[in-house]
């Protein structure tokens, strides 16, 4: 957890009792809320609520990977999404990571097959997941 945060992020803590004005400015209505920003000051993702240490780590890596994907750092995004699917099995982040792994691979290569492979993996491992539903249109992609 510490290594993930310090290697990849500049960490900031905003305390409600000392900097409560920033809660309103950034539309934070409940805590804990963790937000991920880029170096241009743009917020990419946020999540609210308590997670186990392993789920928290997986969620931070997943959302960091999605931010890197938006910044077109596809190789890093793919590496991190693979890490979530392999090293954080059993965490809540895995189905979404499988979905976005296909997306990142497609954006990187313009080959649509990873989208379909992601759907197949989701159907096999997480048939009831919302992310399996979201990936359903990719069944039209031939392998």
């Amino acid at each position: 957890m510490v290594k993930v945060v310090t290697d990849w992020f500049i960490p900031v803590r905003i305390s409600g009792d000392k900097q409560g004005d920033l809660f309103g400015k950034h539309l934070v209505t409940w805590t804990p809320t963790i937000t991920i920003w880029d170096g241009e000051g743009r917020e990419h993702y946020r999540f609210t609520g308590f997670l186990t240490p392993e789920d928290l780590c997986a969620r931070i890596i997943l959302d960091g990977a999605k931010a890197e994907m938006a910044l077109k750092n596809y190789d890093l995004a793919i590496k991190c999404l693979n890490d979530v699917t392999k090293k954080y099995k059993g965490t809540c982040a895995v189905p979404e990571a499988i979905f976005y792994l296909g997306v990142a691979q497609y954006l990187s290569s313009h080959n649509p097959k990873p989208l379909r492979e992601g759907l197949d993996s989701l159907r096999k491992e997480f048939p009831q997941s919302e992310w399996t539903l979201r990936a359903k249109p990719y069944e039209l992609i031939n392998l």
Binding site: V12, W37, D38, G41, H44, E68
Partner: peptide, 30 residues
Amino acid sequence: MISWGDSIEKAVKKAKEEKKLVLVDFFNPG
């Protein structure tokens, strides 16, 4: 041990220099 800053603006500037992302934890103590 994580060394937490308390300024989003400073963190964003540092993130740009070091090509990193910023993680902001909004919390209520106690």
